[in-house]
Design a protein around this nucleic acid. Structure first.
Length: 334
DNA sequence: TTAGGGTTACAG
DNA sequence: CTGTAACCCTAA
């Protein structure tokens, strides 16, 4: 009874995330052997790492949208069908996923048949229906300037990096920086919150209290960017320009998530999709609004309109298929 | 050694 | 009492 419960500290958690990011999931012993992490994780075993990683992922996934769905599922299970097995709405057998982005040659060869299981899902969605995205790639010139759209991730890293606050920067500071340096969407705050959450879960950022720091091991390729051409290089006065920029941003989100899902196993895709829900939710709202605007203006905004609708469709596909995967796995358990 | 199910301690 | 996080056990 010498050890009641040794709760994980932010440093340990960050080290674990960083370790996973470096070595990949399931290399607990390797991570533990890494001198960089062994310093912080000396009191943790490989099993501890595994368990903690599982907890992190579970909470991360169930944190965004799952709660509502869980409630829904509970309700829908209540009905008069008693012939069923007493299904306990507990955690599903979610597998910790690797957010690895480095071109790892030995991608897990276990080709999951979850893809098949997915097609048997109540919904008729599949991960494969991501093709409408091809449209978006071509429609991109609608904005006139084919700027390599900056990811919000980069902006966040840049903000934190340039703010140079020893204790890290909080959301307000980051938002202020971005708003100051670039023209930001009206709902930057929402996007920012989502991104910060994601980056924290990713291990890219360390969240201590209300401040965010860049994980020491993360190679910051940030400050090499030029001035204000990122989110948009146009005047903010024109509503048309705004609309276009929103489209660009949306596209970047879609592209990023899809390209991420493409090379993934079904399990990884499921987790990524779960994460995508949060972003998609925001992006859908934006795209829908953009579409409405475009319809109202209906002048030369045809291209933008078309793209916005395509983006909506694609995003909805993502979130719906993500839902399918999650709900399927959640209900098919036991 | 790891993945995953199960159990216990703690917080709400 | 319920949900969550740390911990434990075991098959592969």
């Amino acid at each position: 009874m010498g050890a009641p419960k040794q709760k994980w500290t932010a440093e340990e958690e960050a080290a674990l995330k960083a370790g996973v990011r470096k070595h990949g999931t399931g290399k607990w012993r390797t991570i533990l052997s890494d001198p960089e992490f062994s310093a912080i994780l000396h009191s943790r075993s490989n099993v501890d790492l595994k368990d903690k990683w599982r907890n992190i992922n579970v909470t991360a996934i169930w944190g965004s949208r799952q709660k509502a769905k869980l409630a829904l599922k509970k309700t829908s299970l209540t009905p008069k069908l008693d012939g069923r097995t007493p299904v306990i709405p507990k955690h599903d057998g979610r597998t910790p996923v690797t957010p690895k982005q480095d071109g790892r040659t030995q991608m897990t060869p276990k080709h999951d048949d979850n893809t098949i299981a997915l097609s048997t899902a109540p919904q008729n969605d599949e991960v494969v229906d991501a093709k409408p995205l091809a449209i978006s790639s071509g429609t991109m010139q609608a904005s006139g300037s084919k700027e390599p759209v900056a990811r919000l991730d980069k902006l966040i890293l840049e903000a934190i990096s340039n703010l140079k606050e020893p204790n890290g920067s909080d959301r307000a500071s980051i938002a202020s920086y971005i708003e100051d340096q670039y023209w930001a969407p009206a709902n930057l705050r929402k996007l920012l919150a989502t991104k910060l959450k994601f980056l924290s879960a990713n291990g890219t950022l360390i969240k201590a209290k209300h401040k965010y720091r860049i994980t020491p091991n993360t190679p910051v390729s940030v400050p090499k960017r030029s001035p204000k051409l990122l989110l948009e290089g146009r005047q903010k006065g024109s509503p048309k320009a705004q609309k276009k920029e929103i489209n660009i941003l949306t596209k970047s989100l879609v592209d990023a998530d899809l390209s991420r899902m493409r090379g993934m196993t079904a399990q990884e895709a499921a987790a990524a999709a779960a994460q995508a829900i949060a972003e998609a939710e925001v992006a859908i709202a934006e795209a829908e609004e953009a579409a409405r605007e475009a319809e109202r203006a209906e002048a030369e905004a045809e291209a933008a309109q078309v793209f916005a609708k395509a983006a909506i469709k694609a995003l909805k596909s993502i979130s719906t298929s993500a839902m399918s995967i999650i709900m399927l796995r959640a209900s098919c358990k036991s």
